[in-house]
Amino acid sequence: MADTQLPEPALAEIRLAAVLHALADPIRLQIAAELARDQGELACQAFDLPVTKSTTTHHFKVLREAGVIRQCRRGTSRMSHLRTADLGTLFPGLLDGILAAHLAEAGRP
């Protein structure tokens, strides 16, 4: 069975406001941080999130539609990975800065 790519914006369609909106939510920021740490692709069920399955699905959809992640169906799983190169091309340093700030904030008391 072949992978099926889920709809996402083309590089020229990604907007800064949509990316910032997607990453402003703590759950979506956690998803992005885990994908960045893994530096590959992860199945949606690999994330231990404090929300219901339907809410998790919504968060992944927001990230995908903003152009932050790419998803494909592989068998019964949805595999996700960050569009690091695309975001770096459009907004140099943005994703790295947001993720570094997230890590720094997580380390504060």
Rank of each mutant, 00 (worst) to 15 (best):
V62M: 13
A17K: 15
E13I: 04
C72G: 00
T76Y: 05
A106V: 08
A18M: 06
G75K: 12
T84C: 04
G75P: 06
L6W: 05
F60L: 09
H102G: 05
T84N: 08
H21K: 14
T57D: 14
V19L: 06
S80M: 03
E8L: 09
T52R: 14
E65M: 10
R64F: 02
A12N: 12
A106K: 14
A104S: 10
T4V: 15
K61C: 06
L49A: 09
E41D: 13
P7V: 01
R37F: 08
A101L: 14
D25A: 09
V19D: 03
G97W: 08
P7E: 09
V19F: 04
P92N: 07
E34A: 06
T84V: 08
H21V: 02
A22E: 07
S80K: 01
I98Y: 06
A33L: 13
L11N: 04
E65Q: 15
T76W: 03
H81P: 00
L87M: 08
L95S: 00
A32H: 06
T89W: 08
F47Q: 06
C72A: 09
I14D: 04
K61A: 11
D86M: 03
G97P: 02
L82V: 03
T57F: 11
Q45V: 12
P26G: 09
R108E: 14
A46M: 10
A104Q: 12
P26L: 07
R37L: 09
G97R: 04
L95I: 03
L95T: 01
A17S: 15
R64N: 04
R28K: 10
V68Q: 04
I14V: 15
A12T: 12
L6G: 04
A66Y: 01
T89M: 09
T52H: 10
